[in-house]
């Protein structure tokens, strides 16, 4: 039965996608766009949703949440540069989170921190492409560092959400 999804799973994914969008907008509001001279720099709060999706639904759904979040943000905000940043950051985060979650010795905290760190890397790669200068690499260490702290926090917040979703799921099915 690998790979198949229940309707509940799909509904869950939809909800988590919506959550990811809301979180993105929230972090945009929290961090006004001028803090770092890089346009489109983001904290990565939406990783909460991606992480929850990963643990509650599945890997592919998590990827979909990451991709569609960026595209829908584009639809809402019209900011192509910001979209590319979200996309790259989200993809990088998803990739490492998938890898790390398979490792036996790594808990959700490690997964999240690794994911947030690579979110930063993804954004810098995007910045390199957009500005076509090497200078933006200067910001990389700081993004990675900040991201790591965010990652720990995100993991801490994700755990109850996943457990709650399980609980709701069980209740619903009954």
């Amino acid at each position: 039965m690998r790979g198949s999804r229940t309707a509940y799973d799909i509904a869950k994914t939809a909800m988590l996608l919506a959550l990811a969008l809301v979180l993105s907008i929230l972090e945009a509001w929290l961090l006004p766009r001028g803090i770092l001279p890089i346009p489109g720099f983001k904290l990565g709060l939406a990783n909460i949703a991606i992480l929850v999706t990963l643990y509650s639904v599945g890997r592919k759904e998590a990827l979909m949440v990451a991709l569609l979040r960026s595209l829908l943000l584009l639809a809402f905000g019209g900011n192509i540069v910001g979209c590319i940043f979200s996309l790259m950051g989200g993809l990088a985060a998803w990739g490492t989170m998938c890898l790390l979650s398979d490792m036996k010795k790594v808990s959700i905290f490690g997964v999240s921190i690794g994911g947030a760190a690579s979110h930063g890397v993804g954004q810098i790669v995007a910045a390199l492409l957009v500005t076509r200068t090497l200078y933006v690499v200067v910001y990389l260490p700081y993004l990675v560092l900040a991201g790591s702290f965010a990652g720990a926090l995100i993991a801490y917040l994700t755990i109850p959400v996943v457990k709650a979703l399980d609980h709701i799921g069980n209740e619903m099915i009954q």
Partner: peptide, 8 residues
């Protein structure tokens, strides 16, 4: 829109 997964 929400589930672009491979469905067998």
């Amino acid at each position: 829109m929400t589930s672009v997964t491979w469905t067998r």
